[in-house]
């Protein structure tokens, strides 16, 4: 800023003046603000202001009540209830969200259980079929063994008698017994 500007521009004049005074003012204010006197004065001023406000508020409240007009406190109460209701809605939303996610999880679990059951059923069916086939084979083996044993015995008996005089009746009875035994064995195995 040139010397001429400082002299001729009114703003520049104040700027120059302020520049020279700034430090002094700052120190002065600092001293004042840090003194207990300032704190007491501000406290007293605030106290007086609050007392007057309190009186105004009390009178205004009575006046409003007489006129059946809601006061600031009434409005605050309603607004507070709105806030509380909003909060409850928010909590409910959260719970519903939680339930929905729980429901989704339950659906997943149910699907898994269903799948497992299906698998178990298929496995059992396959197992049963395989088991039956095995049993059939074993049964046939047993039959073959029985037949082989009983056939060998009857041959040795008839050969020990040698004359072939064994009655046809007894031979027939023996064959019936064999057949019965075979049937019973088969039934037992099947059961």
């Amino acid at each position: 800023m040139s010397e001429k500007e400082k002299i001729n521009d009114p703003a520049a004049f104040f700027r120059q003046y302020y520049g020279e005074m700034e430090d002094g003012w700052s120190k002065l204010w600092e001293q004042l603000l840090s003194s207990p006197v300032y704190a007491q004065a501000m406290g007293a001023l605030m106290d007086a202001y609050l007392s007057s406000q309190q009186a105004v508020q009390t009178n205004l409240k009575k006046y409003m009540e007489n006129l059946n007009i809601p006061t600031k406190d009434d409005l605050a109460r309603v607004a507070y209830q709105v806030v509380q209701a909003e909060q409850k809605i928010s909590e409910l939303q959260k719970e519903i969200k939680g339930m929905k996610s729980l429901e989704a999880k339950l659906d997943l679990v149910l699907a898994e259980v269903k799948e497992a059951k299906e698998f178990q059923k298929q496995y059992r069916q396959q197992g049963e079929q395989k088991g039956l086939v095995d049993l059939e084979k074993k049964l046939e083996e047993i039959q073959a063994l029985i037949v082989a044993k009983t056939g060998a015995k009857s041959q040795s008996r008839s050969s020990s008698k040698g004359d072939g005089r064994g009655s046809a009746k007894s031979q027939g009875q023996s064959a019936d017994k064999k057949q019965k035994a075979k049937t019973e064995t088969r039934q037992t195995v099947l059961v």
Partner: peptide, 8 residues
């Protein structure tokens, strides 16, 4: 200083 309980 300002918020001293004796004055505030």
């Amino acid at each position: 200083n300002w918020l001293n309980p004796e004055t505030f």
